[in-house]
Design a protein around this nucleic acid. Structure first.
Length: 816
RNA sequence: ACCCGGAUGGCGAAACUGGCAGACGCGAGGGACUUAAAAUCCCUUGGCCGCAAGGCUGUGUGGGUUCAAGCCCCACUCCGGGUACCA
């Protein structure tokens, strides 16, 4: 086979992707094409893609779709003159790997390197512009040493604490799950119903960053859906905490409400069954019923508790004093009030809250109207629903507040309650502290030592890493303690402070902690003395462009932001948001359905890259739909993209250097440069590819021989999409350096202006003709030309009432 | 239930800021080349009426605004995602 780098500048025929791709992958590795000078880059650009979990099944087509889109964006930036750093690594710790190892009877410490090697092979085959010298593997001690360091920083800053808490326990995976890992009361991984258990857990105080996590969103260049998902998750609600004294007791019930304006409609209170005041206020006659109800609730698993059903509850026999009216109102307990939100108690306003309405109807409690819509008055009865509209209503049955619009009443009633010491304005968040303890094996041991004399002692940074030992029996059991706790020889250590015998923490940390800081590690991946080098961090961070799946819109992205803020506050970094720009890619489905092993419609990328070539496969993935929306993978579609590459190849092979390029082709070329440039920058890859196809069709129209100048920029444009083929063509056209160092083709704006345009002529809004006119044609001249056109003229019956003229586009004549 | 998306030919999809709906590709039909097939190339391809010229109609449904609506407004249906007894 002849070579591109020989003196003979011809491309061998026909296009054989396997040869071309192998050749260029070797050359890139030899020449260091994909590595960047991390210390010297004058114009740095950090392009990050979410790193994969290296599953045993190998690279999923969804991974490749995500990575290819990110790769194109990075390659395009490089062509724009940036030194682009695009690293990739492996999120190798976690339940996924551990469960799979258990299933096939292997050990994760042996299995993970094999999986990584397989992923590595597939990723290299795909031809990504990844700087592999900066690879990270979260399960390697060189990495998790620093994950443990991150834990210690949180500890030092008072943001890591331990508490006994009701946690979500998965009886199948035998582990604690974060709230975020529970879906509808089911374990996100295995689908088992989650139970409640009480365990001592390590938590991070993410809730104290809630306001900052929320406010910073406004200044981030992120997709709106992602920002909205974070806002919802943080769940800020502004309201009031109202104090209700309990009649005949020396205690008060504090309730949280966002509808202080409806306080005159509060006809009873409800406590969560596990509320600490229940025992104190319950009267003797109700004690048996109350305790029975508490027992039932406690035994319920989380799904039963939280799935919507008919309302249940029990009267405590106690009464509270209404702070505004002085009335005695009954205190109930019911499982629809949740201990973990607000104060675990509510004032029930059945007239204006659906749940309270349902409860009041079920137990015959009074329902009072305190908000009237335009169609109501103070005594309009309720139908079968509460009136919850808070936009248009006015207060009624609310003493001095009658007649106030709800919007004003919210602040006025709250202020009045505050003035009389019945309430205080508060802000509540749905966001809970982050439980990071896992009673599991495959993760970084939490670097804490318990000493009888000194208490909880953090492992000194100089003693990191706390290595995860190789133990054959890593399987969790239902004792609630980590498998590591069964290994006394590992768990027993001298106290770092006093030297007396002490014990290690035997829980490992959540995988989400591994991934909450990995972007900081890449530029310093080979540095063994610090987690991240100050100068490199300053040069490369925050990340310029982050691309990943929206399934991480909440957890991973929120935790990364939190950890970044903490490290900023601890003086380790100068920025407090990690990702300047984030875009979520869509999902690839197949034949209209989600890909899954059970449906047998999973795509193995190896097979397609083998048959069509990595370039064609990459390009097809990008062509099948808008990158940010995803698309439907169909086997048939890939041939169209491959045909385009074949034609491009043949065009380069057969081109001419004689004479001058065609002016109309060159005009089209500059339009294409503009379009492909804009689309590549905004991730509109499908339309960028369409534009390149369109241009090639013009270049080859009528079987003409293309001129070199017509084709050269197309090779540059296609490079980010089909990098191997582009390099081969570029070399064949006489270049010795990589096409990625050749920049982006120059756009000549004068080539974009036409002297003539096609003007659409409408009569009464219907197209009746098209005219070629000068770009700067006047309305009068255009109208005259239109009237002279017989196709138009025959519709011009009656008097001309109006003429609309949009320069360069259309002329609409209204007659009749 | 709530919060985001979305609905366009046989299929995947385009359409900038309201200005020619269907770019680009797949598939299909026809033709060229070939002993033949594959590959390649050319033509046609939203629907209806028409020999044709041409006309009518068409972007989930019903209404509205406008000279002009896939795009804006109101009401609704269906699909996808997220959250979910959050007070």
């Amino acid at each position: 086979m002849t070579h591109a780098d020989t003196t003979d500048p011809t491309v061998p025929a026909p296009y054989d992707p396997a040869t071309v791709e192998t050749r260029w992958q070797q050359r890139w590795a030899e020449r260091g094409t994909n590595t960047v000078d991390l210390d010297g880059a004058p114009n740095p650009f950090y392009a990050l893609m979410m790193f994969p979990y290296p599953s045993a099944e190998g690279l999923h087509v969804g991974n490749l779709f995500a990575f290819t889109g990110s790769d194109i964006s990075a390659r395009f930036r490089r062509q724009q003159g940036y030194q682009v750093f695009q690293p990739l690594g492996y999120d190798a710790f976690g339940i996924h790997s551990e469960n799979y190892a258990l299933k096939i009877g292997a050990h994760p410490m042996e299995l993970t390197p094999k999986n990584i090697a397989n992923f590595q092979r597939q990723l290299e085959r795909a031809g990504l512009m990844v700087d592999w010298s900066a690879k990270v593997d979260t399960s390697h001690a060189d990495y998790y040493k620093w994950t443990q360091w991150v834990f210690l920083q949180l500890y030092k800053q008072g943001l890591a604490y331990k508490k006994a808490a009701a946690v979500n326990w998965c009886p199948t995976d035998k582990t604690v799950l974060a709230n975020e890992q529970v879906e509808n009361g089911l374990c996100e991984r295995c689908g088992t119903a989650v139970e409640q258990r009480f365990l001592e857990q390590w938590f991070f105080k993410i809730s104290s960053y809630a306001e900052r996590l929320l406010n910073n969103l406004d200044s981030l260049d992120w997709s709106t859906i992602t920002k909205q998902a974070q806002r919802n998750w943080i769940g800020r609600s502004q309201g009031a905490e109202v104090v209700f004294p309990v009649d005949a007791h020396d205690v008060t019930v504090r309730v949280f409400t966002t509808r202080a304006d409806t306080i005159f409609g509060a006809t009873y209170l409800v406590l969560a069954p596990e509320h600490p005041l229940v025992d104190a206020v319950t009267v003797d006659e109700q004690r048996v019923a109350v305790q029975a109800y508490q027992d039932v609730t406690q035994r319920q698993d989380v799904i039963a508790r939280k799935s919507v059903k008919h309302k249940t509850g029990v009267f405590t026999g106690a009464y509270a004093i209404h702070p505004a009216t002085g009335a005695r109102i009954p205190i109930w307990i019911a499982d629809y009030v949740l201990m973990e939100y607000g104060t675990g108690a509510i004032m029930a306003v059945p007239g204006h809250d659906e749940r309270d309405f349902e409860f009041a109807r079920a137990f015959g409690l009074p329902i009072v109207r305190v908000v009237a819509g335009a169609e109501h008055d103070a005594s309009t009865p309720f139908g079968d629903a509460a009136y919850t509209d808070d936009a248009g209503g006015r207060l009624v049955n609310s003493a001095q507040f009658d007649g106030l619009p709800v919007i004003d009443a919210k602040t006025k009633v709250t202020r009045w309650l505050e003035d009389h010491k019945h309430a205080s304005a508060v802000i509540n968040y749905r966001l809970h502290d982050w439980c990071i303890s896992r009673q599991r094996y495959w993760g970084p041991p939490i670097p804490i030592i318990y000493c009888d004399a000194c208490g909880t002692v953090p492992v000194p940074e100089s003693q990191l890493p706390v290595e995860l030992p190789f133990i054959p029996d890593f399987k969790p059991d239902d004792s609630g303690v980590s498998p590591l706790a069964r290994h006394e020889e590992w768990a027993r250590v001298p106290c770092p402070t006093c030297g007396k015998p002490a014990r290690r923490e035997t829980d490992v940390s959540d995988t989400f902690l591994d991934s909450a800081w990995y972007f900081l590690r890449y530029p310093s991946a080979t540095n063994s003395t610090v987690p991240f080098d100050a100068a490199r961090t300053k040069k490369w961070l925050p990340v310029n462009s982050y691309i990943g799946g929206n399934e991480h819109a909440v957890l991973h992205l929120l935790y990364s932001r939190f950890v970044t803020m903490v490290l900023h506050d601890g003086g380790h970094i100068a920025f407090d948001e990690p990702f300047t720009r984030f875009r979520a890619h869509g999902m690839i489905i197949r034949d209209g359905a989600k890909m899954s092993k059970s449906k047998g419609n999973v795509i193995n990328p190896d097979v397609y890259m083998e048959e069509w070539g990595a370039d064609a496969f990459r390009m097809y993935l990008m062509f099948l739909g808008p990158y940010e929306e995803g698309g439907d993978f169909r086997d048939q579609g890939i041939s169209g993209v491959r045909r385009f590459l074949d034609r491009l190849w043949a065009t380069v092979r057969d081109l001419s250097t004689e004479g001058a390029p065609d002016i109309d082709v060159m005009r089209k070329q500059h339009r294409t440069i503009k379009k492909v440039g804009e689309d590549s920058g905004s991730l509109a890859y499908n339309t960028a590819i369409a534009a390149m196809m369109e241009y090639l069709n013009v270049v080859r129209r009528g079987d003409r021989t293309a001129h070199r100048d017509e084709v050269l920029p197309l090779v540059q444009m296609v490079a980010a999409y089909a990098p191997h083929l582009a390099e081969e063509c570029w070399a064949a056209l006489g270049h010795s350096r990589s096409v990625f160092d050749a920049g982006w083709p120059t756009l000549d704006p004068t080539m974009l202006v036409d002297d003539e345009v096609e003007l659409v002529v409408q009569v009464n809004g219907k197209v009746r003709g098209k005219l070629r006119v000068a770009v700067d044609v006047t309305q009068d001249a255009a109208l005259a030309a239109a009237m002279a056109d017989e196709g138009v003229a025959r519709f011009l019956v009656g008097e001309v009432r109006k003429v609309i003229f949009v320069p360069k586009r259309l002329l609409n004549v209204v007659v009749g």
